[in-house]
Amino acid sequence: MHAVRNIRLCTKDCLCLYVCPTGATDTETGQIDASKCLSGCRACVDACPSHAISLIPAEFPPQQEKTVSVKNALLTLAASKMDQEEIASKLAETTGNPVLRQLAEALGKSNRLMAEDMLRESGYMLPQSRTVGELLESLLSEKQPADFPEAAVKRLLELVNGNTMQEGKASAFEKIDY
Protein backbone atom coordinates (compact mmCIF):
# COMPACT_ATOMS: atom_id res chain seq x y z
CA MET A 1 0.00 0.00 0.00
CA HIS A 2 1.44 3.39 -0.95
CA ALA A 3 0.34 7.02 -0.86
CA VAL A 4 -0.69 9.08 -3.88
CA ARG A 5 -1.44 12.78 -4.18
CA ASN A 6 -4.46 14.21 -5.98
CA ILE A 7 -2.89 17.27 -7.58
CA ARG A 8 -6.31 18.91 -8.07
CA LEU A 9 -6.87 18.96 -4.33
CA CYS A 10 -3.32 19.72 -3.20
CA THR A 11 -3.02 23.29 -1.84
CA LYS A 12 0.76 23.13 -1.28
CA ASP A 13 0.58 23.24 2.50
CA CYS A 14 3.61 20.94 2.46
CA LEU A 15 2.77 19.23 5.75
CA CYS A 16 3.36 15.90 3.98
CA LEU A 17 7.00 16.91 3.54
CA TYR A 18 7.15 17.80 7.22
CA VAL A 19 5.79 14.46 8.50
CA CYS A 20 7.13 11.93 5.99
CA PRO A 21 9.85 9.83 7.66
CA THR A 22 11.57 8.91 4.38
CA GLY A 23 11.23 11.97 2.15
CA ALA A 24 8.96 10.10 -0.26
CA THR A 25 6.69 13.14 -0.60
CA ASP A 26 9.61 15.42 -1.52
CA THR A 27 9.70 15.14 -5.31
CA GLU A 28 9.59 17.59 -8.18
CA THR A 29 7.02 15.52 -10.11
CA GLY A 30 4.05 16.45 -7.91
CA GLN A 31 3.63 12.78 -7.11
CA ILE A 32 4.84 10.68 -4.17
CA ASP A 33 7.83 8.39 -4.71
CA ALA A 34 6.31 4.92 -4.25
CA SER A 35 9.74 3.32 -3.87
CA LYS A 36 10.44 5.37 -0.72
CA CYS A 37 6.87 5.24 0.67
CA LEU A 38 6.46 2.99 3.74
CA SER A 39 3.52 0.63 3.26
CA GLY A 40 0.63 1.55 5.56
CA CYS A 41 2.46 4.46 7.25
CA ARG A 42 -0.20 7.06 6.32
CA ALA A 43 1.46 9.92 8.24
CA CYS A 44 1.02 12.20 5.20
CA VAL A 45 -2.59 11.09 4.67
CA ASP A 46 -3.52 12.14 8.20
CA ALA A 47 -1.48 15.36 8.11
CA CYS A 48 -2.82 16.77 4.84
CA PRO A 49 -5.36 19.55 5.61
CA SER A 50 -6.80 19.35 2.08
CA HIS A 51 -7.38 15.57 2.06
CA ALA A 52 -5.33 15.40 -1.12
CA ILE A 53 -3.43 12.22 -0.22
CA SER A 54 -4.86 8.73 -0.17
CA LEU A 55 -3.50 5.18 0.00
CA ILE A 56 -3.63 2.78 -2.92
CA PRO A 57 -3.71 -0.86 -1.87
CA ALA A 58 -1.12 -3.22 -3.33
CA GLU A 59 -3.76 -5.94 -3.51
CA PHE A 60 -7.42 -5.42 -4.29
CA PRO A 61 -10.50 -7.28 -3.10
CA PRO A 62 -11.62 -9.95 -5.57
CA GLN A 63 -14.26 -9.14 -8.18
CA GLN A 64 -17.74 -9.86 -6.83
CA GLU A 65 -19.43 -12.78 -8.54
CA LYS A 66 -21.98 -11.73 -11.13
CA THR A 67 -24.81 -14.02 -12.19
CA VAL A 68 -25.11 -14.89 -15.88
CA SER A 69 -28.64 -13.51 -15.77
CA VAL A 70 -27.57 -10.05 -14.53
CA LYS A 71 -24.47 -10.00 -16.69
CA ASN A 72 -26.42 -10.67 -19.88
CA ALA A 73 -29.06 -8.06 -19.10
CA LEU A 74 -26.32 -5.45 -18.53
CA LEU A 75 -24.45 -6.50 -21.67
CA THR A 76 -27.66 -6.22 -23.72
CA LEU A 77 -28.01 -2.62 -22.56
CA ALA A 78 -24.31 -1.93 -23.16
CA ALA A 79 -24.67 -3.23 -26.73
CA SER A 80 -27.64 -0.93 -27.33
CA LYS A 81 -25.71 2.06 -25.93
CA MET A 82 -22.74 1.32 -28.18
CA ASP A 83 -25.06 1.03 -31.21
CA GLN A 84 -26.41 4.43 -30.22
CA GLU A 85 -22.89 5.80 -29.85
CA GLU A 86 -22.09 4.56 -33.36
CA ILE A 87 -25.21 6.17 -34.87
CA ALA A 88 -24.56 9.43 -33.01
CA SER A 89 -20.88 9.54 -34.08
CA LYS A 90 -21.87 8.85 -37.67
CA LEU A 91 -24.46 11.65 -37.50
CA ALA A 92 -21.87 14.04 -36.06
CA GLU A 93 -19.42 13.06 -38.80
CA THR A 94 -21.76 13.34 -41.76
CA THR A 95 -24.14 16.19 -40.98
CA GLY A 96 -23.43 19.64 -42.34
CA ASN A 97 -25.53 21.17 -39.58
CA PRO A 98 -23.37 22.41 -36.66
CA VAL A 99 -26.26 22.33 -34.18
CA LEU A 100 -27.12 18.72 -34.96
CA ARG A 101 -23.42 17.87 -34.78
CA GLN A 102 -23.18 19.37 -31.30
CA LEU A 103 -26.23 17.42 -30.13
CA ALA A 104 -24.96 14.21 -31.74
CA GLU A 105 -21.56 14.59 -30.07
CA ALA A 106 -23.25 14.95 -26.69
CA LEU A 107 -25.44 11.88 -27.36
CA GLY A 108 -22.43 9.83 -28.48
CA LYS A 109 -20.42 10.73 -25.38
CA SER A 110 -23.38 10.06 -23.11
CA ASN A 111 -23.94 6.61 -24.61
CA ARG A 112 -20.29 5.61 -24.35
CA LEU A 113 -20.34 6.56 -20.64
CA MET A 114 -23.50 4.53 -20.00
CA ALA A 115 -22.04 1.52 -21.85
CA GLU A 116 -18.83 1.78 -19.83
CA ASP A 117 -20.80 1.81 -16.59
CA MET A 118 -22.87 -1.25 -17.61
CA LEU A 119 -19.70 -3.15 -18.55
CA ARG A 120 -17.91 -2.13 -15.36
CA GLU A 121 -20.80 -3.55 -13.32
CA SER A 122 -20.97 -6.75 -15.35
CA GLY A 123 -17.84 -8.10 -13.67
CA TYR A 124 -14.98 -5.85 -14.77
CA MET A 125 -14.84 -3.38 -11.89
CA LEU A 126 -11.07 -3.18 -11.47
CA PRO A 127 -8.26 -3.56 -14.01
CA GLN A 128 -6.84 -6.14 -11.59
CA SER A 129 -10.02 -8.26 -11.67
CA ARG A 130 -9.56 -11.93 -12.50
CA THR A 131 -12.24 -11.51 -15.17
CA VAL A 132 -10.10 -8.87 -16.92
CA GLY A 133 -7.06 -11.17 -16.84
CA GLU A 134 -9.12 -14.01 -18.29
CA LEU A 135 -10.46 -11.76 -21.03
CA LEU A 136 -6.96 -10.58 -21.99
CA GLU A 137 -5.71 -14.18 -22.03
CA SER A 138 -8.60 -15.28 -24.21
CA LEU A 139 -7.73 -12.52 -26.70
CA LEU A 140 -4.19 -13.89 -26.95
CA SER A 141 -5.37 -17.47 -27.42
CA GLU A 142 -7.67 -16.58 -30.32
CA LYS A 143 -6.54 -15.99 -33.85
CA GLN A 144 -6.35 -12.22 -34.35
CA PRO A 145 -5.93 -9.92 -37.36
CA ALA A 146 -2.40 -8.81 -38.24
CA ASP A 147 -2.90 -5.34 -36.75
CA PHE A 148 -4.03 -6.68 -33.34
CA PRO A 149 -1.99 -4.92 -30.61
CA GLU A 150 -0.66 -8.16 -29.16
CA ALA A 151 2.30 -6.52 -27.42
CA ALA A 152 -0.04 -4.18 -25.53
CA VAL A 153 -2.17 -7.10 -24.30
CA LYS A 154 0.91 -9.07 -23.18
CA ARG A 155 2.29 -6.07 -21.33
CA LEU A 156 -1.08 -5.50 -19.63
CA LEU A 157 -1.12 -9.09 -18.45
CA GLU A 158 2.31 -8.57 -16.88
CA LEU A 159 1.23 -5.36 -15.20
CA VAL A 160 -2.29 -5.92 -13.89
CA ASN A 161 -3.00 -9.62 -13.76
CA GLY A 162 -3.32 -11.45 -10.48
CA ASN A 163 -3.28 -8.41 -8.22
CA THR A 164 -6.49 -9.30 -6.44
CA MET A 165 -6.70 -11.39 -3.31
CA GLN A 166 -7.46 -15.07 -3.56
CA GLU A 167 -11.02 -15.96 -4.40
CA GLY A 168 -12.85 -17.43 -1.46
CA LYS A 169 -11.24 -15.17 1.10
CA ALA A 170 -14.59 -13.77 2.14
CA SER A 171 -12.98 -11.37 4.57
CA ALA A 172 -10.84 -9.73 1.93
CA PHE A 173 -11.69 -6.24 3.12
CA GLU A 174 -10.63 -7.01 6.67
CA LYS A 175 -7.21 -7.91 5.36
CA ILE A 176 -6.62 -4.40 4.10
CA ASP A 177 -4.64 -2.54 6.71
CA TYR A 178 -6.51 0.78 6.91
Partner: peptide
Amino acid sequence: EKIRELSFKELSAL
Protein backbone atom coordinates in the same frame (compact mmCIF):
# COMPACT_ATOMS: atom_id res chain seq x y z
CA GLU B 1 -28.51 -18.74 -20.62
CA LYS B 2 -24.97 -18.59 -21.84
CA ILE B 3 -22.87 -15.49 -21.32
CA ARG B 4 -23.15 -13.17 -24.30
CA GLU B 5 -20.05 -12.71 -26.41
CA LEU B 6 -18.65 -9.19 -26.38
CA SER B 7 -18.79 -7.36 -29.70
CA PHE B 8 -15.90 -5.13 -30.87
CA LYS B 9 -17.86 -2.08 -29.78
CA GLU B 10 -18.44 -3.51 -26.32
CA LEU B 11 -14.78 -4.47 -26.04
CA SER B 12 -13.94 -0.88 -26.91
CA ALA B 13 -16.15 0.48 -24.11
CA LEU B 14 -14.82 -2.12 -21.68
